[in-house]
């Protein structure tokens, strides 16, 4: 059931994952990802009809917190690791605009 993972597919996955890939990586991942996915296909041998999917190992439910204000990071603490800062803001390249 695994489709072929060719260079084009690898580039597409890289785009979805927001990772720019070098030509060497595209070549390497086109070799490797297919065989790993083929390995994953082993699960198709198992009949899982009627089996409830298990997302989590313990029986947890949604937990509601009390709506009370409490201390959190100060603006300076939150911005301390910012690669680029502009006053009280994280500075990033333009997000909205022409293209994309």
């Amino acid at each position: 059931m695994a489709e072929t993972i060719d260079a084009e597919k690898v580039r597409h996955i890289g785009k979805l994952a927001r990772i720019e890939l070098s030509d060497r990586e595209v070549e390497m991942f086109s070799r490797q990802l297919g065989s790993i996915l083929e390995y994953f296909d082993k699960l198709q041998e198992l009949d899982t009809s009627g089996v409830q999917p298990m997302a989590h190992p313990t029986d947890i439910r949604n937990i509601f917190g009390d709506d009370v204000p409490h201390e959190s990071l100060s603006t300076d603490e939150a911005l301390a690791n910012a690669p680029q800062r502009d006053g009280d803001f994280f500075k990033v390249p333009k997000v909205i605009g022409e293209g994309r």
Binding site: I13, K15, A17, R18, I19, E20, L21, F29, L33, L37
Partner: peptide, 21 residues
């Protein structure tokens, strides 16, 4: 995309790629 390309090592990229897929 460039930040993540520069910052992650090969195995981490492989797992993110497979998980994305």
């Amino acid at each position: 995309s460039k930040t993540r390309a520069e910052g992650f090592g090969e195995e981490v990229k492989r797992r993110i790629m497979l998980g994305t897929y």
